[in-house]
Amino acid sequence: MKKVQSIRIENLTKSFGSGDSFVSVIDGASFTVNKGELIALVAPSGAGKTTLLMMIGCVVDPTSGQIWLGEEKVYDNHWLTNNSRQIRREKIGFIFQAHYLIPFLNVIENVTLVPQTNKIPTKEANAHAMELLKYFDIADKAYNKPSQLSGGQNQRVAIARALANNPEIILADEPTAALDTERSISVVKMLKKIAAEQNVAIIMVTHDERMLEYCDRVMKIEAKKIVFE
């Protein structure tokens, strides 16, 4: 099967401060992630995993380099778009360590918030959200508030939210950190399945080496450089 590039990074650098306070976090990162791949991003705390993820997600400004999301070049030493949030809404799904659902919205509203912002009609967005909730076996909780769900259920809702806008890319920042081993394996298997079935590129930050066996590739940050195992 032909590999289709979903994320391409060239010579990406990120540094903070200047002079004595100058700190380089990422130096000359270059890599590609293809559609359908689940990539694990592993590095010690403070090595820049989240910063790299947020640069790919158009949240944090890189210092230099190039970024392609799908076919679109979005960064070339400066942002090539003035609406990075539209890119996030349309191309990227985010999953975090905690579920970070909006507490005053119920499950289905949390899942349809981004699609509805993308002008998808409510009926259509709700139908797609229900499909996702059924996929994750939490359709019966569609009208419950996040406070009425368990941690695992909320994390599944968060994954459904990340998928609701049919993204090309999912950026998952330690999605299993708050879960026990059994649930962690279940979530990672789920991500693997999503990557394969939905043809989505997923970068997952993790500290848990037990999860690496379920990933297609393992990417590490070593001495500010990106290396693949």
């Binding site: 949240v59 949030r85 996030r88 349309e90 985010f94 970070y100 909006i102 918030l113 912002t117 939210r161």
Partner: peptide, 16 residues
């Protein structure tokens, strides 16, 4: 603020 930051992160525009 937490919820507002999340909304901004997942791409909800400031106008909303």
């Amino acid at each position: 603020m937490k919820e507002i930051s999340i909304m901004k992160l997942i791409g909800i525009p400031d106008s909303i």
